[in-house]
Structures are given as C-alpha cells and as structure tokens.
Design a protein around this nucleic acid. Sequence first.
DNA 1: ACAGTCAAATGGCGTC
DNA 2: GACGCCATTTGACTGT
Length: 255
Amino acid sequence: MVENNSTNTTIKKTSSSSLSFNPSLTLALSGDRDHDHGLTTKKPVGDHVGLYRQDSVSVGSSLISVASVCVKREREAKSGESERVNNISSTTSDQVEDDDDDNSVHERKKLRLTKAQSVLLEEAFKHHSTLNPKQKQELARELKLRPRQVEVWFQNRRARTKLKQTEVDCQYLKKCCEALKEENTRLHKELQELKALKISTQPLYMQLPAATLTRCPSCDRSGDTTSATNAGSLLTMAQQKPHFFNPFNKPSTAC
DNA sequence: ACAGTCAAATGGCGTC
DNA sequence: GACGCCATTTGACTGT
C-alpha cells in the first residue's frame, strides 16, 4: 500500500523518486496533524497548507463538501509535481481501486487523514459502526479514498472502541474486586470472633486441638474440627458430642 | 538521537 | 469468496 503523501512530497526527497505511487490516495498535509494531538507540525510545509487549516469543520452534509474540497485542493496544489498524479487524482474512486496491486513500488507510505476526513468518518461511525458495501463505496467516494481504506478505518475504529470499552470494564471489575476483598476481610474477622466466642463457651474436652480429635473407631465419624467451615457446622459438631473421639478415653466409652 | 505514542495498513484466521 | 476481527507491523510524529 502506497500513498501519495504530500507531506512527504514536500519534505522528503524520497517521494520524488516514487511518483509511480498510487496517486489517487489523499493524504493529510503536515498541517493537519493538529487533529491528532492538538499540535501543529514542526516541519516546513508547502504553500498550500493553509487550505487545510479548518479547525471548525462542521458536521453533517457540509462536511462532505469540505472534505472533498480539501482533497481536491491538495491535489491541485500538487499538480505541478506530476502530470500522472494529476490525471489519476481527478478520477473517480472506482478508478482509484484499479491500481491497487499493479504498482511495482510497494513502499508502505502511510496516509494521514485530513481533519475533515476524520470528522466525516467519525460521523459515519456514530450512525453505523459497520458499513455495507454501498455505504462504504459512497463514503469512499465522498472522501476520495479507496473503499478498502474506509473499511480499514472502520476496522481500526471498532478496535479502538472495543479497547476503550475493555478499559472501562477493567476499571469496573477492579472496583468490584476491591469491594469483594473488603467484604471477605470483614467476614473473616466476623468468623474469627464467632469462633472465639463459641470456643469460650464449649466444655473443656471440646477445646482440644484438632490434632487430638481423631476418627472415632466405632462409628467412623471424623472429629476433625478443620472440616467445619463455618460457625453453623461448628455448632452442629458441638451438638454431636459423642462422635468426638478423645484418645485419652477408653475406646469402649467413646460413643 | 532516541523512546514512546498513535493510527494506517497488513496478514492470518474464523464465520457466514 | 467476502467480510470482520485480531495481532502485528510500520510510518509519522512528539517529547525528552
């Protein structure tokens, strides 16, 4: 994929040797970079840059013409550079698609959309996050871009939206996690308090460490208090007093 | 000069 | 086969 980047044409000598690039693609002048980060380029640009300083681009139908005019003027400004560029850039988007693969030069020059193009694409995205072929063609025609470029822009835009949503979800889950941790800590504390309370009211033999409470040989019930996972089961086990096997007692008296 | 960021573009893969 | 999604690459640009 190769684009006719006017910025490069102005600044980089490499573009002069790449006039066989697909000239139908529109590229933002360096002056348009301010739509990305609110900053202007520090590089020198051509005389036609001023044409693109349209910070107050309106949305809606007028946008289309704004974008088209920008693109058209950009191309007109480049008319002196290459006759071929001029010829093809004045063609329709259908023709734009034709030379997708035929250029032997496949340097990957990156397109920078103009602000108007970006705004129009954003507007379109607000209405539908995906485009049907007809919409794509139409949008591409309005923007003087190849349909594939419009398609790619929408794909990347969807990816950005998804990423943003993932970040929002992540933040929400983090908050949930924090809340659950707090709740868990609180419940643990409560459990300890209940255990302490329970033990202090139990008979002496029931306060023996779990290790000393072995399996009752006669009824095969466990006396291991570690299996009691909550205060309720603790209570149950306490009520089943005969099944706690005290090794200090004679087996016959265990149960 | 270099690292970091953003976004256009590519290629692979799955789905319809 | 066209299309969308995803991971990745790559070029343009900024900040230090």
